[in-house]
Nucleic acid binder design. Structure first.
Lengths: 138, 138
DNA sequence: AATACAATGCAACATTGTTGCAAAATATTG
DNA sequence: CAATATTTTGCAACAATGTTGCATTGTATT
């Protein structure tokens, strides 16, 4: 597990630092998606707020994590399945956000339906955000 | 048109005030969705920032407008087709956000595809956010 | 027109996100 | 392994966004 973390960083040509290791570890252990807030608290005041912002930004650029649009517009991040290849837009996702507990799930195995658009529109990415009650809160 | 505005406010048991009339008017004339920022500027420093926040909040509660999850996580609002009945969850939407110009379209006539979820999950609302290039920027 | 009620503006504050720069940590080279 | 080059970090300062309490003003009701 720890080796996976270092591998991932190396594979993406990122230097191995405490904050990157810790934040990546949080994602690997997390069940759902994480907001900046979660990370700041779960890492226990260990790192500066700015460092967390920059680390998340770096991870997004490298395609290690991706952002999720949510109904309450808090930015959430989740691990990409395999590192999304740089430059390519990553797989389209279905995300589920529980109205009760706020947990955000990546439903990678659910297929994103094809949506037909009006003429003149081109699609880069399709996000499907489903809200409702999750397994635990139903 | 002006009558529509007053009707809408009355129908929702809201008192008729300058800010509400103006903000509702902005939505009726707007092609796409509006962010708080847009409203603050388009209404020309006429109202306090706080008033705009509270008005938007009220409109959302009454089901006159709804929020749109966006890829860049800026809160955007758009008119509901017909006032969404209070308490009932409103129609599911397909939204399109242009990567170039940032305009957000409500594609009300496009049907939201049915997504099958894992057992134990119940759906309240499905949002589909498509990003790409719009008609004008293609 | 007088009263009851609701919305507004203001001030103060909390949260979230950004930028520049010196200090510290990591990587690279001989 | 030590010395140097490169990156990353933490701090400070700032900007933008959102929230709350309260006196004042505007709207609705009788």
């Amino acid at each position: 597990m720890h080796q996976t973390i270092i591998d991932t960083l190396k594979r993406n040509q990122l230097s191995i630092t405490d904050s990157r290791k810790k934040i990546l570890e949080l994602f690997l252990h997390a069940k759902g998606a994480l907001a900046h807030f979660d990370i700041e608290h779960q890492s226990g005041a260990e790192f500066d707020r700015v460092t967390i912002y920059r680390t998340l930004q770096t991870f997004v650029e490298k395609g290690i994590i991706h952002t999720i649009p949510t109904a309450d517009n808090s930015i959430r991040y989740a691990l990409c399945k395999d590192d999304c290849a740089n430059g390519h837009h990553h797989d389209d996702h279905v995300h589920f956000m529980c109205d009760d507990c706020g947990t955000t799930y990546c439903l990678d195995h659910v297929t994103v339906p094809q949506v037909s658009l009006p003429n003149g529109f081109t699609v880069t990415q399709t996000d499907v955000i489903i809200s409702g009650k999750c397994m635990k809160c139903a």
